[in-house]
């Protein structure tokens, strides 16, 4: 049960963002990631940041949840920023040592890079905390529908995706239980060097694989018993409906993009 709270978990606060059409939210998330790369100065970055804060406020989910999303990736972000900082050229040189040098431009760019990472991670978190996995899968299926004319098995892919997403918490629970059981049998996960620690994963991974295969088998049987046929046309219990709010959300994005392009020129 401990493991149930993790990065990007759906939080049911029923905010206005929760009620948006998942298709709108998926497009919005992608589009935001694209326009993050348009930001090239202070104003554009501030605009994107404020917009993100606005979304976070709308989502009624505490800032802490979002911070938990960024925290584990902090080292990757900082490392990338450091590479950018030491190896970029251009602008005024400030410090130099052999092949490493820091320039004024490098400092600015690495700061932008940190923001870019944080924005992208946070906007994806906004998507996943406000959208259930079933809605996500339904949205993706609907968006990929045109591909089915090219004989791409879209609904099967969506089914696979929704099953995979659905079982993440279950499997994390399972890992916790197996680790507890092995700890109760005297296993110490934290002692020893890297190799010894890796070896210690065996008593966790094998039971996990065994139960995952068994679960997959059971699930396949249950699906067949309920008449699931791959490729057969399926209807959905909850139809996706495009509401007025989705239009407003779309309009907001158009305005944001135009504002960004204008501010870029300054």
């Amino acid at each position: 049960m401990n493991s149930k709270v993790f990065f990007g978990l759906y939080v049911p606060t029923n905010s206005i963002l929760h009620r948006l059409d998942p298709r709108m939210k998926i497009i919005a998330c992608f589009w935001y990631v694209v326009i993050v790369f348009l930001a090239n100065n202070v104003l554009t970055n501030v605009l994107l940041g404020l917009f993100l804060l606005f979304l976070i406020w709308l989502s009624k989910v505490s800032l802490k949840m979002y911070w938990q999303g960024i925290k584990p990736l902090m080292w990757v972000i900082l490392l990338t920023a450091a590479v950018q900082l030491f190896f970029s050229t251009g602008g005024q040189p400030i410090w130099q040592w052999h092949f490493l040098n820091i320039t004024s431009l490098g400092i600015i760019q690495s700061i932008y890079l940190i923001f870019r990472f944080a924005f992208i991670i946070t906007i994806s978190t906004v998507l996943t905390v406000t959208t259930t996995t079933l809605q996500l899968a339904a949205g993706i299926e609907s968006l990929l529908k045109p591909l089915s004319y090219l004989k791409v098995p879209v609904s099967q892919l969506a089914m696979m995706l929704s099953i995979a997403l659905r079982f993440i918490p279950t499997i994390m629970d399972e890992i916790q239980t197996i680790m507890d059981a092995q700890r109760a049998r005297g296993m110490d996960f934290s002692a020893g060097n890297l190799f010894q620690r890796a070896k210690r994963l065996v008593p966790v991974m094998i039971p996990l694989f065994v139960s995952s295969f068994k679960r997959a088998d059971d699930l396949a049987l249950a699906m067949e018993a309920r008449g699931y046929q791959p490729g057969a046309p399926r209807t959905a219990y909850r139809q996706l409906r495009w509401h007025m709010n989705d239009n407003w959300a779309f309009l907001t994005y158009v305005v944001l993009t135009v504002a960004l392009i204008v501010l870029r020129q300054i």
Binding site: I178, D180, A181, A184, P203, I206, V210, S211
Partner: peptide, 15 residues
Amino acid sequence: REVGYVFQFPEKQLF
């Protein structure tokens, strides 16, 4: 060492 714990469905821990 003092406490033994048999979990629910303990056969899941066999490896």
